[in-house]
Design a protein around this nucleic acid. Structure first.
Lengths: 198, 198
DNA sequence: GATTATGTGGACACGGTGTCCACTTTACTA
DNA sequence: TAGTAAAGTGGACACCGTGTCCACATAATC
């Protein structure tokens, strides 16, 4: 372990995170200044910058715990989210859960620079790996490029736009993704009637 | 017509656009300040702000002409992009063209706040309407939510990420989208063998 | 050539960011 | 328990970009 965190430091970290969560909840992340957070947390600017060099890193920290929880459920939770169910069902469950996550916390991401850095977060790679594994399990051919296409609507900016501007419901997004995935599948045996569009 | 534009004003507008195009090409839009643009264009700050209240509006102006050109081709160009070809082919052609457009000009959008405002641009609505119409023509059921999902990978941020970080080629993106769309289709008649994944 | 409206440009004030360093607190050691 | 080193803290500060404002210049109109 690389040195214990001092007690006061831990306390302040908690304060900062809590203050930031409140502020991000009540107005766009863009409009929350580092100063706001420091003041609300009862902490000096220097202290804030020591741990979190910018807004994005705070948002990521806040997001992290929620994402971890979902990852845990994907790996070891009950079906259909966890292992045990057929791939298509697990995918549908994943979409629903992911939409739920976005629904609850996308405000952390929208409007700050997190959108970009979030991709670098380990979490996004995790979702990708998960979906890819399910596609492979379902014998969908050429999963590599498909994964990205299937994940794109869950990019925070895109999702936020679909919800806020277009007025789509979370259910509609989930359903569209599920239907899309359901339409995929192993190349039909020669001669089998295909349902695809010509 | 709401008043002619003065000759000097027109000249300066052109200068500004040209300067901005050069600057955006050589470094991330984020890092180009309004001052940079004004200086390079040989124009005062006030003049710049008069027409373009922020970076985003400049980028949108630059993007506009390219987007209009593609719109024109979609409406009145030769098949498969224009009318005449079967919907699936037109969609594939559209994807390819759109990827090309992003390939050439996504740097205008990435990193500035355009990402957001771009959605409000008429252009995005146009793409949506186009794809939706093609889905309808192909008798794909429930096109409304699907359109968004199919367009999501073409959101500039997402596309840029797939290209830069993931290393996907333009061709891969196009192909994934095309395959996805091809898999869609009218609900198969009861009893017909489905190629979809279970 | 005079008048008016439109366009221009740079000075300015404001606000946020990130840095820096003297000070305080904690954890360790004798 | 006192002393010491390391870690943490907080606010003052300088920097930079933004957007506004207004005195001036230039083009269109009479």
């Amino acid at each position: 372990m690389a040195g214990m965190e001092r007690a006061d430091a831990a306390r302040n970290r908690a304060r900062i995170l809590e203050a930031a969560a409140q502020l991000f909840a009540e107005r766009p992340a863009q409009d929350v200044t580092m100063d706001d957070i420091a003041r609300k947390a009862g902490v000096g600017r220097g202290t804030l910058y020591r741990r979190y060099p910018d807004r994005a890193s705070i948002a990521v920290a806040l997001l992290d715990e929620h994402e971890r929880a979902l990852q845990e459920r994907l790996l070891r939770g009950d079906p259909p989210l966890g292992p045990g169910a057929p791939p298509a069902e697990r995918l549908a469950a994943f979409y629903a859960a992911m939409v739920r996550l976005l629904e609850d916390h996308s405000h952390l991401v929208l409007g700050s620079e997190v959108g970009r850095s979030r991709f670098e977060t380990g979490a996004y790679g995790f979702w990708r790996a998960h979906v890819r594994a399910l596609l492979v399990a379902a014998r969908v051919p050429g999963p590599d490029a498909l994964v990205e296409v299937l994940l794109a609507p869950l990019a925070p900016e895109v999702y936020g736009y679909q919800r806020a501007v277009l007025g789509l419901t979370p259910g509609q997004v989930t359903e569209a993704l599920t239907r899309l995935t359901a339409a995929l599948g192993p190349a039909p045996a020669a001669g089998a009637s295909s349902a695809g569009m010509t």
